[in-house]
Design a protein around this nucleic acid. Structure first.
Lengths: 133, 133
DNA sequence: CAGAATCCCGTTGGATACTG
DNA sequence: CAGTATCCAACGGGATTCTG
């Protein structure tokens, strides 16, 4: 099974070194805690206001919220719509690009969920092996 | 299309708040630059020595290499085999768990590769919109 | 309400030197 | 070769305050 998987994986990426660097940069940019959380929230609720995101994310500072949203906007993952009213109202929603990323990350999410116990078991085993030495 | 995708995504995760936290922690642990790179390298070449990984990763310090490999070992993603010879020889290889993660991450990798130009275009557009204001 | 600005601290992570 | 240990700079990111 492992060999099948390996072969399947190896045949997929064309592996262009120049492209790789950019891809790595994009992944580094996109694969952080808050970006993932925001994508999840915006997948569950299509359109969100700033304060809704702040509440849904629980634990995020508004500095990081603003910062992360700006970066996502910059990368074309979300759209930001400002309504010129008082008090201000700003709506965020995923673009198709962002939705595509959500779908791609879904695999990782499911993997983490499916293998959570296996990881915890591995950690316990590792810890046990350590203190015996 | 966007709605199809959204519906597909929403129906997938059971969304247990307690489990979610652990999953987030796992993703935070696992979704960093070096872990992803090492997984890629170990997918392409099944078994690697420490120095091979150091060369393949290009840019990683041996501190981060050691640290990342230990964390991956702890989480059961790689096995570490020490051969009691001089000079020392240590081999690393992905476990089935690690291979599964590789597969899951593959989707993100492909997405980044496929949408690289779209992201660069979005960045250019954002920059243009900025300096006009 | 949605942010911008400032201050500040902890952690990350690189460079270097040493060891079995 | 495959690390460990130490030092130090940079950055991430939280708390707080202020504004349109």
């Amino acid at each position: 099974m492992a060999d099948d998987l390996r072969h399947q994986l190896m045949t997929l990426p064309p592996s262009d070194p120049a492209v790789d660097r950019l891809v790595e940069e994009i992944i580094g940019r996109v694969a952080d805690k808050w970006t993932m959380l925001l994508i999840e929230v915006l997948t569950e609720q299509e359109v969100c206001r700033f304060s809704e995101l702040a509440r849904a994310c629980e634990g995020i500072s508004q500095k990081m919220l603003t910062q992360t949203l700006r970066a996502m906007e910059r990368d074309g993952l979300v759209t930001r719509t400002v309504y010129p009213v008082v008090p201000p109202k700003v709506e965020y929603r995923l673009t198709d690009l962002g939705l595509g990323l959500a779908k791609a990350f879904c695999g990782v999410w499911l993997w983490a969920e499916a293998n959570r116990e296996a990881i915890e078991a591995a950690r316990a085993a590792y810890a046990a092996a350590q203190e015996e030495a």
